[in-house]
């Protein structure tokens, strides 16, 4: 691992840890409903000690919105990314191991889903399923799994041809034991590299859906805050800048931490 990866990885991990803590204790840090009108509209930051970052056009506390937005953003993206990787592992493993028709059919479907512009698909899914946190998770999962499925399949196919798998066959291991004890542990390692990227992207997709007003309207999220801040872009640009910064920070910290983790693991594999 280069020094740069190490440093950026550490920074990413620290920011991510802070964000997770904020999300976990959102209710303690900023009690109450962040969508409630609590003060005069469009207060600038530091003007009122009760609202350190000011208020929105509707008199909502910006700080509370950011804090509670962390919860929505991280939960949705982590769940969606977990689903993406699980679907990827499932499809990729089945495809790689079974081969033949199963592989053909699964790969055609993967290719088809990958050919649909992912965000358009997510958009369509949310609009069909209705605007809720669950449907956002489902939409992200169903639109972004193909790359992970292809990676897992490629890895399964690669590892299957290695000599140690033949050695296990010669030793008399059953196909199932070979799949789970020999091939999968090796094939799934590169999937770790996907975690950071997938979560980071999920954060961005979630925020974009919320920005377009397709997330749960009863939950304060960063994307929604940017969208409502647009109306007052000229007079109060901070209402757009702050929540966007939060999204960028979250996505960046996840991908930096993920990169470092992947580099660490691939080093461990070589040593």
């Amino acid at each position: 691992m280069t020094r740069l990866t190490l440093i950026t990885g550490l920074i990413g991990t620290v920011i991510l840890a802070a964000l997770i803590l904020i999300a976990l204790f959102a209710q303690q840090i900023a009690p109450g409903d962040p969508l409630q009108m609590v003060g005069r509209p469009l207060l600038s930051p530091f003007a009122d000690p009760r609202f350190p970052l000011g208020t929105t056009q509707l008199g909502r506390d910006v700080w509370a919105g950011l804090v509670h937005g962390a919860r929505v953003s991280l939960t949705v993206s982590a769940t969606a990314a977990a689903a993406v990787i699980l679907i990827g592992i499932l499809v990729g493993t089945l495809s790689g191991f079974l081969g033949g028709y199963v592989d053909d059919v699964l790969m055609r479907i993967t290719e088809a889903v990958q050919s649909i512009p992912a965000f358009l698909l997510a958009l369509a899914l949310v609009s069909v399923l209705g605007a809720s946190v669950t449907s956002v998770v489902v939409a992200i999962a169903l639109s972004s799994w193909p790359p992970s499925a292809r990676l897992v399949r490629a890895e399964v196919l690669r590892v299957r041809t290695l000599d140690y798998v033949d050695a296990a066959r010669v030793a008399g291991r059953s196909p199932l034991a070979i799949a789970f004890l020999e091939v999968l542990p090796g094939a799934l390692q590169p999937v770790v590299a996907l975690i950071g990227i997938t979560v980071g992207e999920a954060i961005l997709v979630e925020s974009a859906l919320a920005f377009l007003g397709l997330s749960d309207p009863n939950l304060q999220s960063w994307g929604l805050m940017v969208a409502s801040g647009r109306a007052t872009l000229r007079v109060a640009p901070l209402l757009v800048i702050l929540p966007g910064l939060a999204i960028a920070l979250a996505s960046l910290s996840v991908s930096l931490a993920g990169d470092a983790l992947a580099a660490r693991l691939s080093e461990g594999r070589r040593a």
Partner: peptide, 24 residues
Amino acid sequence: QMVFQDPLASFTPHRSIGKSIEVP
């Protein structure tokens, strides 16, 4: 039984030598 060309590639990387010999 069989002995392969590349000895490193013929051992499962995440398993100790002893455990690998134990498999058969």
